[in-house]
Design a protein around this nucleic acid. Structure first.
Length: 801
RNA sequence: GCCGAAGUGGUGGAAUUGGUAGACACGCUAGCUUGAGGGGCUAGUGAGUGAAAACUCGUGCGGGUUCAAGUCCCGCCUUCGGCACCA
């Protein structure tokens, strides 16, 4: 039995065994359940390294949990609707459906070759009407629950191609295909009232075992802020302009109002004013993405209108500002140049009054922090918080304002003007929309003619026209809709009669959700909202979909994200073929902590492969001796046993608590390196054999979540008629871990000057004496007086002189 | 611009609660093994000084707190993720 490690052969063999046994099909049973979910991929064609990393992490944890006797559910599916299929369809003259299905087949084969322990019996794809018919049903139920409405909103309009473009399709303000200048266009769209849940989405973050940075990002995104709504009467009119401000204490510093270019007042004014009309035209050239709006130069135009300051009674000019978002607040900003950076820039540019009304130690305008109120009539001298209260009280008396809590979170626009998405189940009777009844669902996406490019549904006459006076909705759903509830549908994916069933009840919530940090806000927030809304219409239980979250970092090459456009991608398949899945998995887990970015390195793959070869060489051909542990172990033997158990303890903690697979692997490597050579000889002592066998069993068990093929193969040949490696995890012996000696660090003035072995039970005085007698320590202390001794138990002693 | 991260040897990274910086690997150097290549094995490997013992410096930059700072605080720089129509 001196054969070399042949990953291809053993991986095929082991995978065949798993298939035969249907080993990873999960059923309800008495054990504690563990639903481990990795974010399903967009079927782009080939697996990339980010997928491999994501799915290996999920698989390692799933396998570990199985060994710990959990009933594990780990499904996989496809986020199959989206733009790339349409683009590929145009580029390659294939239908989005065929392209997508082909990609799914390829990627599924790749996933299988990685040895991921998925329950494929629950596979789903979002482009399948078996899936999206339920999504249409959910939309109907949401509509009935009052969560759906229609509203005008702005899109990127390509006037040449006459299509709506995604933000990423607008490059430098121009359409990526046509090159035409992109315009803002307002159209009617469907919205879902996620803001109804703003408070709950915020509050229940506390209950989640999620990374703090993700919770913080979500919290800031929801953006609950306390302030006041303040009304400014328009001069010579009975109308008011309403603003929201978090800083009512600065109200006497207001020197202008700025309204959004999309504000109805701005549009009305433009009808009679050429300059304003021109200005609004110019504003239409800015992309709709917030990052672009903020980066754009701030400019504005005076409307000529004035408003009356609610407290001072002064006249203030009304401007239109390109930086004011209609979606946020009321679409009107009160400009306080002395205490806001953006207002300061704007006022400086257009020579508007800058009036300081807050005083702090810092004198440089703009002063952003709170302080003492000045130049504010009878509120002078108050501190900001008190002034805020009194000013709001005063506004309320005058009925010109009131206390208000405002969220940054906006309602979710779910309409998309595309082909490859879930049709929105709505019809228009004489132009009046109505959401379809459950029995009229599903609305299936129409098939395309062989040669037809994927034209938006709005141009598909056959699909649209039901009767002369009845037409279908031509928009499809945002693909975030598809991915907002798939975690729940997985549990019942094979049930065609009901959306959810008893399995849903059993498996939810997801115990661990793993995916890229780039989804920290949108996808995760939408899913959380969906879960709560589904709960409220009685379809699921519990308040949150994902109990624990692990956000993985990017896979980089040469310091940049691997991407097709940069041409720095590395194809995982070639590595799986060359080194085997176990090596690729091991490499991925060893190279860095899952939450950090991973720098791809060719040569480290070799290292991972070498480690597996070492294990193969040590174990292949050996048989478990099944000796009892009743030996008087030598000190050396004991130290190997201790190392085995200490490694086990560390690895458990790394797998379970820290998700720190790289250090777990390093510890296993250390253990392997620690085994003395003579123990590996055939004529070693029985006591040595015992220690070696123990180490071998531990190594195989500890490593098998990461490199399952080689470990199971070696386990089966080493431990004939033993238990399945998947149903066994070793027991730690705590007594073995108790050590009698430790290495004391001796410092003088905080610098290490010596180390010495000390018995654990020693008294502090005794330890100090030993430390003071170290030659090098003596040299440093000389005749100096020891002013202070810091002693950290079982660790170090520091003499301060 | 706003929100959230990251920065440690030639490289990937470790240091879990403020307590030995560089675990574990890769690479490199030398030696052994081999007909050669590959592979394997042994030793060394942060920089500098030194024959050695040992010492000095050293965790993006500049300050600070502390007996002690990669870790805490203040101010910067760079890179990455998100910013609501990429998924």
């Amino acid at each position: 039995m001196n054969s070399n490690y042949n990953p291809k052969l053993i991986e095929e063999k082991v995978q065949e065994k798993w298939n035969k046994e249907n080993r990873y099909v999960s059923k309800i049973d008495d054990r504690e359940k563990y639903y481990c979910l990795s974010m399903f991929p967009y079927p782009s064609g080939k697996l990339h390294m980010g997928h491999v990393r994501n799915y290996t992490i999920g698989d390692v944890i799933s396998r570990y949990k199985r060994m710990k006797n959990f009933n594990v559910f780990q499904p996989m599916g496809w986020d199959a609707f989206g733009l790339p299929a349409e683009n590929a369809a145009i580029a390659n003259n294939v239908s989005p459906k065929d392209w997508t299905n082909q990609n799914i087949e390829n990627m599924k084969a790749q996933l299988k070759s990685l040895g991921l322990s998925y329950d494929w019996s629950k596979e789903l794809r979002t482009c399948d009407s078996k899936y999206y018919k339920w999504e249409q049903l959910i939309f109907k139920r949401f509509y009935d629950a009052g969560l759906v409405y229609r509203k005008k909103s702005i899109v990127n309009w390509d006037p040449v191609d006459e299509t709506v473009l995604a933000n990423e399709q607008v490059i430098d303000g121009r359409g990526w295909r046509s090159g035409a200048k992109i315009e803002n266009k307002e159209i009617d769209q469907w919205f879902i009232k996620i803001t109804n849940y703003a408070d709950e989405l915020l509050d229940s973050l506390d209950s989640l075992d999620w990374p703090d940075n993700v919770k913080t990002m979500q919290k800031n995104w929801i953006g609950k802020s306390k302030g006041a709504e303040i009304k400014y009467k328009i001069e010579n009119s009975d109308d008011f302009l309403t603003t929201f401000s978090t800083r009512p204490d600065t109200i006497f510093g207001v020197s202008f109002l700025a309204i959004s270019p999309s504000h109805h007042l701005a549009i009305e004014l433009s009808n009679n004013n050429k300059e304003i009309k021109k200005f609004l035209e110019e504003c239409k050239e800015i992309k709709t993405a917030e990052a672009d709006i903020v980066k754009a130069d701030k400019f504005g135009i005076d409307t000529g209108l004035s408003v009356i300051h609610p407290l001072s009674g002064k006249k203030l000019p009304v401007w239109i500002g390109n930086f004011v978002l209609l979606e946020y607040g009321t679409g009107v900003v009160m400009g306080v140049p002395a205490h806001d950076v953006r207002d300061f820039e704007f006022a400086s540019k257009y020579d508007l009054e800058i009036k300081q009304v807050i005083e702090t130690e810092n004198n440089e305008l703009p002063i952003l922090e709170e302080g003492k109120v000045i130049n504010s009539e009878n509120f002078n001298g108050l501190m900001s918080d008190e002034a805020t209260k009194k000013i709001i009280d005063r506004l309320e008396e005058l009925k010109l304002g009131e206390k208000l809590i405002q969220f940054r979170l906006r309602d979710w626009g779910v309409s998309r003007q595309r082909y490859w998405g879930c049709p929105i189940p709505v019809v228009y009777k004489n132009g009046e929309p109505s959401v379809l009844d459950e029995k009229e669902i599903p609305v299936e996406l129409p098939e395309l003619d062989k040669d037809s490019p994927p034209i938006p549904l709005s141009q598909n006459k056959e699909f649209l026209k039901i009767r002369d006076d009845i037409a279908r909705e031509s928009d499809t759903f945002d693909t975030f809709m598809d991915s907002s509830w798939y975690y729940a549908r997985f549990t019942s994916a094979d049930n065609d009669k009901n959306i959810f069933d008893e399995n849903t009840k059993y498996w939810l919530p997801v115990d661990l959700y793993i995916g890229g940090i780039e989804h920290a806000i949108l996808h995760l927030l939408y899913s959380r909202f969906f879960h709560k809304a589904l709960r409220d219409i009685g379809l699921v239980e519990g308040d949150e979909p994902f109990k624990r979250l692990l956000t993985q970092g990017m896979v980089l090459k040469d310091g940049a994200k691997m991407s097709k456009s940069k041409g720095n991608t590395v194809d995982p398949q070639s590595y799986i073929e060359k080194y085997g899945a176990d090596t690729v998995r091991l490499y991925m887990m060893f190279t860095s902590h899952p939450e950090q970015s991973l720098e791809w390195s060719e040569s480290s793959v070799e290292g991972a492969s070498r480690f597996l070869k070492k294990i193969w060489k040590l174990i292949n051909g050996k048989k478990y001796n099944r000796l009892s542990s009743r030996f008087d172990f030598t000190k050396e033997e004991l130290s190997l046993r201790r190392k085995s158990h200490a490694t086990l303890k560390k690895v458990e903690n790394d797998y379970e608590v820290r998700f720190s697979f790289n250090t777990a692997i390093a510890a296993i490597m250390e253990l392997l390196n620690f085994i003395p050579d003579e123990y590996k000889n055939e004529n070693s002592l029985d006591s040595q054999k015992y220690c070696l066998d123990e180490a071998i069993l531990f190594i195989l068990q500890m490593l098998s979540p990461i490199a399952p093929h080689i470990c199971e193969y070696l386990w089966d040949s080493f431990y004939e008629d033993g238990p399945s490696i998947e149903c066994s995890w070793p027991e730690i012996s705590e007594t073995l871990l108790e050590i009698e000696e430790f290495e004391l660090i001796v410092q003088v003035n905080g610098k290490v000057r010596g180390k010495v072995n000390i018995n654990k039970g020693s008294e502090q005085k005794e330890i100090e004496n030993i430390a003071l007698n170290i030659e090098n320590v003596k040299n440093y202390i000389n005749d100096s007086e020891v002013k202070k001794v810091i002693y950290v138990k079982n660790k170090l002693v520091n003499f301060v002189i």
